[in-house]
Nucleic acid binder design. Structure first.
Lengths: 221, 221
DNA sequence: CGGCTGCTTGAATGCGGTCAAGTCCAGTGG
DNA sequence: CCACTGGACTTGACCGCATTCAAGCAGCCG
């Protein structure tokens, strides 16, 4: 695809874009993890509202809306490909199949969002962490970053806590329980799932959420 | 807009569409409240993941994706206008401005979704309920259903609980506290906000979330 | 080495869930 | 008209989960 304006590599902690600032291009994440998060109105609380894995368009919402309403921050060192919104707009003017494809990506994004609502609203801590790990396994597997229930997840327990709506202290406890239950182990940024079905049951995880068989892959060239 | 195929009125509790079932048209909500919710994988838990107010497109996600991944249920008696997806598709083939407008609606939807994640993940019960009421006031005001901090919200406390990730018993307690704090009163489906700023501060509500000045209104004719 | 960050564990507090009883309706049918 | 019913709401008591505060440890780096 010729709309790509080149690759960038950014260190962990880099701010891809800041809430409220207009951004001229959408980013496709090629490698690493990116978090999208929002501060409370007074800054005293903060919540990660989405986590992007390789293959995800990070801020496609900004394309029709011009402005992003949350912060986008690299959790690990990342590689991203920029797609200038103006170029995308030109392409779409001539080809509404592309428009549909991009739009569909945003609806997948929305599906993941309500899934996060579900996790944080309906599940207790142990189930929430299990659910989160199931989701990451599925999405990273679709991005070819997980085999045989093993994958790298280079997040601190504080990051996981922010993603699951609990403190890092409690994340530590819940991971211990999952380990002691023989479901999975998480250590030094590596996740190993020993009992998929058990972990899914524990996390009330619907394995066909994202019915992602039909996802349209993008690659920048 | 000629894409509308007519109005329907449905009673409270009606199922507009069911998770996994293909649906041939998108619905614009004209009057009433509609909840979108998901059951856990084993059905033992349930979570409302979005709430639609008049003026919202309820299931536009189904348009590019064909299938909906959650249930859509009328909370009150509702009036909806159907927009057959096939007709929308024809329109869009000739006019990509419409595509952009519809797409933008789905991104607003996504914004509301992460806002729900924030509410359930980062806020305690009292703040969550306050936040929820602030959001409803804003959205219903934009839909011309709220004046002077007064609006109808015909939901049971169980509904509110499902939307905020807590039990109806606790919703009752939190509403009492908000009332005793002089922030707002909720009774028999009516909400009266006495202290907007106080309620926003309590709910960590960002008044410019949805920066909805620019929202594009739809009306069916 | 000292300082830092991330992880672990313990103890105490309190928030929110659960269970249960009781009130207040609107609706139904005698 | 009144008894009965069921749903929505309220309140109290109890308990358990998660936060908070704190201390301790391991690894990393200046």
């Amino acid at each position: 695809m010729t709309a790509c304006a080149g690759l960038r590599e950014l260190p962990a902690g880099a701010v891809l874009s800041r809430r409220g600032h207009p951004i001229p291009s959408s980013q496709l994440l090629l490698d690493g993890l990116i978090g999208r998060s929002v501060p409370g109105a007074d800054g005293s609380v903060r919540q990660m509202v989405a986590l992007q894995v390789p293959g995800d368009f990070v801020d496609l919402h900004s394309f029709p809306q011009e402005v992003l309403d949350h912060d986008v921050i690299a959790i690990t060192p990342v590689t991203v490909a920029a797609f200038p919104n103006a170029r995308l707009r030109e392409l779409i003017a001539g080809d509404h199949v592309l428009a549909m494809a991009l739009w569909e990506l945003t609806t997948i994004d929305a599906t993941i969002h309500w899934h996060w609502s579900f996790r944080m609203g309906a599940l207790r801590a142990r189930a929430a962490v299990a659910n989160f790990l199931c989701e990451m396994e599925l999405r990273l597997r679709l991005a070819d970053r997980s085999q045989g229930g093993q994958f790298r997840l280079p997040m601190t327990q504080s990051d996981i806590g922010e993603a699951c709506g609990m403190t890092s202290v409690h994340v530590s406890r819940m991971l211990r329980e999952l380990r002691q239950a023989g479901l999975c182990t998480v250590e030094s940024g590596r996740v190993t799932i020993h009992d998929h079905d058990g972990l899914r049951r524990m996390g009330r995880f619907d394995p066909q959420f994202l019915h992602l068989g039909k996802v349209t892959g993008f690659s920048p060239d």
